[in-house]
């Protein structure tokens, strides 16, 4: 099982500012059987509204500092966080034991072949 956490602003195309990852990609990740959710500075209610408006059922919506909670709640073989900030995405993701991907690194969905592919 693979768990993918998406930052929103600066990462997804629906973000403010828009990132490069389209919601169709999130759908594709869901179809791969991954656990999917968002970890963002947006209010949690706003995160839920974004996913609902795109008809995507996610497994979690959490605030930016809550990746450790996600890891504790969901059992997976690999945990990824995708985001656009060194201080608010990459560093806390690594500290929480997640693999980290910048949006441009995530476009090709490298988790399909594992982290070393």
């Amino acid at each position: 099982m693979i768990l993918i956490s998406f930052d929103i602003d600066g990462t997804l195309t629906v973000g403010d500012p828009p990132g490069i990852l389209p919601m169709d990609m999130v759908r594709a990740v869901k179809e791969q059987g991954c656990l999917v959710g968002s970890c963002s500075d947006r209010p949690i209610s706003a995160q839920r509204a974004i996913w609902a408006s795109h008809d995507i059922e996610v497994d979690f919506t959490v605030s930016k500092h809550m990746l450790p909670d996600v890891k504790a709640e969901f059992e997976a073989d690999m945990y990824y966080h995708i985001g656009d900030r060194e201080d608010l995405d990459r560093r806390p993701a690594l500290e929480a034991g997640f693999e980290f991907l910048w949006p441009h690194e995530a476009v090709d969905m490298p988790w399909v072949d594992g982290p070393d592919a």
Binding site: D16, R42, P43, I44, S45, A46, A49
Partner: peptide
């Protein structure tokens, strides 16, 4: 971004 902030948020 018409987002509310609920007490939970």
């Amino acid at each position: 971004r018409p987002e509310e902030i609920t007490p939970e948020d």
